[in-house]
Design a protein around this nucleic acid. Structure first.
Lengths: 120, 120
DNA sequence: CGGCATCCGGAATGATACTG
DNA sequence: CAGTATCATTCCGGATGCCG
């Protein structure tokens, strides 16, 4: 693959960039992946506590989407009270370094961005 | 007690990750940066054509936000008809490789994700 | 404990018309 | 050409209540 500069972004369905962006453009997906990247497994409530401000509903929705995409796996223990563990799949793990790269950039440049904003 | 691995994601204002995510979590910002990364400069209409489906309003809003963050610069030519050129700033350029990394991942894994989804 | 179903307000996005 | 202004709509996400 030589020429990859000219990407056609106009067809959202066929454009991987837009497709992926549409998934992780939501408020929580990226955060969940990052947090799951720190531990091997996490339970529902542990995730919610770590994120802090997410509602039960949005955590459920986010986890379902990520599971449907094959980025995380869900393991249910047949016991009372219920216990459900979430972890990254290999696919999810493969995304992690790219997100870390983004996080690093965020850490390095957030202050500058914040200052830019306050000027305007 | 607190290890460097343990990032506190709960305080959205102080967390660079969430701060940056909140900015680029919108539908268009990342796309605009990627497209501007291909050319040195682009005019408003050129951007709109390349994206294809974005409304005039949303392009305006997106460009304004990115400009406020200092990621892109805006150059107005005093002429009729008007001509406005957009380009990435150094800050914007520094983000580009990270986004490319994400794009590459998207290209490599979109098919798998799509298949996962259709299974569900 | 780990969800799901429902309702609801506000924000995000879009469509259209108009302007310098 | 590059927007602004306004209105309409969609949809995100929070609150609440119920369930296995």
């Amino acid at each position: 693959m030589a020429e990859e500069k000219e990407i056609n972004y106009t067809e959202a369905e066929n454009c991987p960039v837009r497709n992926i962006l549409d998934r992780f453009g939501d408020k929580w997906s990226t955060l969940v992946i990052l947090i799951l990247g720190e531990q091997e497994t996490l339970r529902f409530n542990e995730l919610q506590k770590k994120i802090g401000t997410i509602s039960q509903k949005m955590l459920t929705v986010t986890l379902k989407k990520l599971e449907a995409d094959g980025l995380i796996s869900r393991k249910v223990y047949a016991q009372i009270p219920p216990k459900v563990e979430y972890k990254l799949t290999n696919l999810g793990l493969s995304l992690l370094p790219k997100l870390h790269s983004l996080v690093q950039w965020a850490n390095e440049n957030m202050e500058e961005i914040t200052q830019n904003r306050s000027v305007v």
